[in-house]
Amino acid sequence: MSQSKGITITQSKIPIFAIAILAIVFAVGLFVVGYDQGHIFSVVLGEQAYEDLYIHELTHDMRHAAGFPCH
């Protein structure tokens, strides 16, 4: 009577570009929700973005609730 044993070998090496993509997502998302004070929209709106604070106001409640310093 023959017995067969199955051994699954997995490759877990992570491509560097996948880590890079996720690292960028991490940094950008953290900045948007936790720290932006008009910086991102200032690229389009100029100095006015620092007065309008659209992203700051949109993420305001989450900033407080997640523990980020807000104002």
């Binding site: 880590i19 997502v25 991490f26 949109l58 993420t59 989450m62």
Partner: peptide
């Protein structure tokens, strides 16, 4: 508007922290 933004901000922050979690999990799973 801000309360609606909270859910959107949650999705963005979750994707951000989830990306870090995914990196660390893939590297440390073994």
């Amino acid at each position: 508007w801000q309360k609606g933004g909270q859910v959107l901000a949650g999705a963005i922050l979750g994707t951000s922290i989830g990306a870090l979690f995914g990196i660390v999990y893939a590297l440390s799973r073994h």
